[in-house]
Design a protein around this nucleic acid. Structure first.
Length: 268
DNA sequence: ATGGTTGATTGTCAA
């Protein structure tokens, strides 16, 4: 059995626990990284995860906004809950997990959305997003013979032309502006990260993980964006098998606007 | 060009 990691912006883990349960029962990933849990740590639905076989739970939450959590069928060791930009937002959690004789450092990120106006001079949320991505330069894809790094999460940037439904129409829309996509790709490369969702995939193939709530018919208009990502250190690319975007989850009852991405590795 | 929806929280912000 391959080793599998799922990432999903769940937009309230308590409200959507039935959807999480469905994912875990249908796909049984070894590890699940959640973003936008919107759940203080003392209210995290630990018992529900345990009942589903995910007994190893790490969370970095806060009241009302943001929040990330990583749950697993196997032991995980909390490494860090990093604060960015000097702000006490819960947007990062890293854990160590063993797979196939390797110690994997797994980063779970929720990057700021950045507001509506793509001008850092008048929009402090956009300024914060750019600063956050700049600080992510410190997160490196460390690896050696017995270890590797994986970074997943809602990074709120669709970096490539075919990561959005219309490149031209989104050039001034936050998530796909040139300053975001340029800085984002530079940060990824500087850290030594490989974009696994584009690894061996033609650059002209559309890939989406998010569809707005505001569309009348999200599936018919299909105006999606690739905001969720799976990166790895270069020594894991030969062990990377494939990944699946669970597009159908966007059509589940009371869905998140993001769908799960499940990556599989030839580990174990 | 604009407005459209959702969640946490209970008026309004964030996404």
């Amino acid at each position: 059995m391959p080793f599998s990691i799922a990432t999903w912006n769940i937009n309230s883990v308590r409200l959507r626990m039935p959807l999480v349960q469905r994912l875990l029962e249908e796909r049984a990933p070894d590890v699940l990284c959640l973003q936008e849990t919107k759940c203080p740590d003392d209210l995290f639905p630990t018992a529900a995860f345990r009942k589903l076989g995910y007994e190893h739970i790490a969370f970095h939450g806060q009241k009302g906004y943001h929040g990330v959590a990583t749950v697993a069928r196997r032991p995980i060791e909390i490494v860090e809950k990093r604060r960015f930009c000097g702000i006490e937002d819960s947007r990062h959690l890293s854990v160590r997990v063993k797979a196939g004789g390797k110690a994997l450092l797994l980063h779970n990120f929720y990057v700021p959305a950045g507001g509506d106006e793509p001008d850092p001079e008048i929009n402090v949320k956009f300024r914060h997003k750019l600063d956050f991505v700049a600080e992510m330069n410190a997160i490196r894809a460390d690896h050696d013979d017995v270890s590797g790094s994986i970074l997943v999460g809602d990074l709120n940037i669709a970096p490539l032309e075919h990561d959005v439904w219309s490149h031209k129409q989104l050039l001034k829309v936050v998530s796909h502006t040139p300053v975001e996509t340029t800085n984002f790709e530079a940060m990824r490369a500087a850290g030594g990260w490989v974009d696994l969702m584009r690894h061996g995939i033609p650059l002209d193939q559309k890939i989406y993980t998010w569809w707005s709530y505001r569309a009348q018919d999200w599936a018919a208009s299909d105006r999606g964006r690739r905001l969720d990502h799976v990166w790895s250190s270069p020594n894991l690319t030969s062990l990377f098998l494939d990944y699946e975007i669970l597009r159908e989850a966007r059509g589940w009852d009371r869905p998140s606007d993001h769908v799960p991405v499940i990556a599989r590795f030839n580990l174990d």
